[in-house]
Write a protein that binds this DNA or RNA. Structure first.
Lengths: 143, 143
DNA sequence: TTGAATTCCTACCATTTTAGTAGTATTATA
DNA sequence: TATAATACTACTAAAATGGTAGGAATTCAA
């Protein structure tokens, strides 16, 4: 039930790009230096975001990346799904529904669906801009 | 961001025990047969629940397990935390807070805290009895 | 008091996932 | 054409996941 580094690093990359939104293309070298994450690893992660059309990429000299939309138009849900794949809490919810033969009588499925709904609603309600503006609502919940 | 089989199997075990609450001790052999999960694997998983005082265990002939409380007094959150360890979405939230040196200026931490709050509130609001009664609120959310 | 049923404990193992590193090809621009 | 950047492919070490196996300890009933 953890977000992997792929998801966390992806979010930090996207936030870095959001904080430089409106400027020229931002290179992974710069992001790597600012975020202190190996550039080679960022190279490996960024295709997931690129495929989801969250970015505009430019190769070659002076190349790099830009957000394809304004930071206020990109939700955290989109980013994490792109980076991590499905955020469904159980894999039997992925792809087509009811792929599990027990789905109809499964007493736990409604629980997982309800949990997913909460996760979706929350993460889809927060944008990159919200995080930059520190607008996130949260409590002191830990452990 | 997936619940592992340890968490899912634990929940199914607890539900099985809940459905036989008030009866004698229930053996893993019976649970294994009903739930179609290897008894040997259940043996390995159940100590996590036992340590959290969710169960009463009895060894030997006619032994087995019982819930230590009524099904309406055991929340899904308790079960999953016992089985999976912390449900915090990022490991930097585990154990003592602010263990990460960047915690104070971390722009993403409030997001993870907010997400955890939602997960906690939801899973702590559902009991074993709720699942048995099919009282879970959920939507049609799936990828 | 012996045998069967059961939990409890420890060790082992194969597979998959995670978190990278490395090298090289490709592309764009100055 | 040199250079700076992405893009792609392959490799790898370590950890987590999802088990299996064997036997010790315990309890009860015949």
């Amino acid at each position: 039930m953890k977000i992997s580094t792929r998801g966390r690093y992806s979010l930090r990359m996207m936030l870095d790009l959001a904080q430089h939104y409106g400027e020229d293309f931002i290179s992974l070298k710069d992001i790597s230096a600012r975020q202190d994450i190996s550039k080679k690893y960022l190279e490996q992660i960024i295709p997931f975001l690129n495929r989801s059309n969250l970015l505009i990429a430019n190769r070659g000299h002076m190349g790099g990346y830009q957000l394809s939309r304004q930071p206020s138009q990109i939700t955290i849900f989109e980013i994490l799904v792109s980076a991590e794949g499905s955020l469904c809490p159980v894999s039997c919810m992925d792809n087509e529904p009811n792929v599990c033969p027990r789905a109809n009588e499964c007493i736990t499925l409604p629980l997982w669906q309800g949990l997913y709904k909460k996760v979706y609603e929350y993460l889809n309600g927060v944008t990159l801009q919200d995080l930059i503006d520190n607008k996130t609502e949260y409590g002191d919940y830990c452990i």
